[in-house]
Amino acid sequence: MEKDKNRNRRSPIFLIVSMLCFIILIIIIIYNFYSLNKSSTKNKELNNTLNTLKENYNIEINKESELKNNIDELNNIDNNISKTKEEVFKLASKLENKITNNETKYKIAYLTFDDGPYYSTDKVLDILKKYNIKATFFTIGLDKDICFDNKNYSCADTYKKIVDGGHTIANHTYSHLIFRGLYNNSELFINQVIKQEELIKDRTGVTTNILRFPGGSNTAKSLCRNDIDKIMKSLQDRHYGWVDWTAQDGDGGYLPSYEKAWSNFTNSINENIEVILFHDYSNITISMLPKAIEYLEERDYILLPLFYESIKVNK
């Protein structure tokens, strides 16, 4: 009885203590879960931050390799230009074949400028640059230290400007004196070719192996008669190729007006691979050039500079 009484007396205290313990435990649990929740949220946040940082890091790594490539490209810019040019010419050869086999709607036009350089060549180069077009300049060397069309200027530096513009510089003989002995004999002719080759090499560092006969190959054939085979053989031995033309505006002869030049030009454009003859001294050609470029581009012509492997370069 006494024991029961004691238990009954201890009971409320025991209960209160138990309750307190219970409440404390519950509070600890709530606190733990609250902290757990907070830590998990933080964990997610940290993971997200880490992922973003890793993404940014990868972006920067990619950027780094791109930038390093750019630096390499810039440090070896001359090599890269030559390499890209080679690739362009290889692709252009393929395109020529495709065009010849009628497998594409695209066409090729090779703009060529003969007899320069002149003071006005600068204007031609500016127009070509504006349209991002590369052309071919068949240059001569005689009397070019003073520009024929502006006596206050020297054309000696223009050879380099042509090359620096990415154009093909080619050989049109040193003197171009068709009716004053150029085609008198094969040796003399070849010497004129070599002299111009050396002049180009000296002024630009480029060794050309593309030639246009002054007056065209037919003039050469008719004036050289028996010597033409010798000339062709010598050219072959020197790994030269030669180019005529398939279209022109007639600026080499008498041109009465812009309209006449334009009609000559548009009437002569009818092949899928055109070699177009211009002269960079002709003001009519220069004023017509932007329109001519647009005319060709509208008709799916890709305008390229000549290269040795082109089917238009006879070997």
Binding site: I81, T84, A92, L95, N132, K134, G165, G166
Partner: peptide
């Protein structure tokens, strides 16, 4: 010039 050649390459 290099950029222009690259553009030409893409065009071809």
């Amino acid at each position: 010039e290099l950029e222009e050649w690259k553009k030409t390459k893409i065009e071809i």
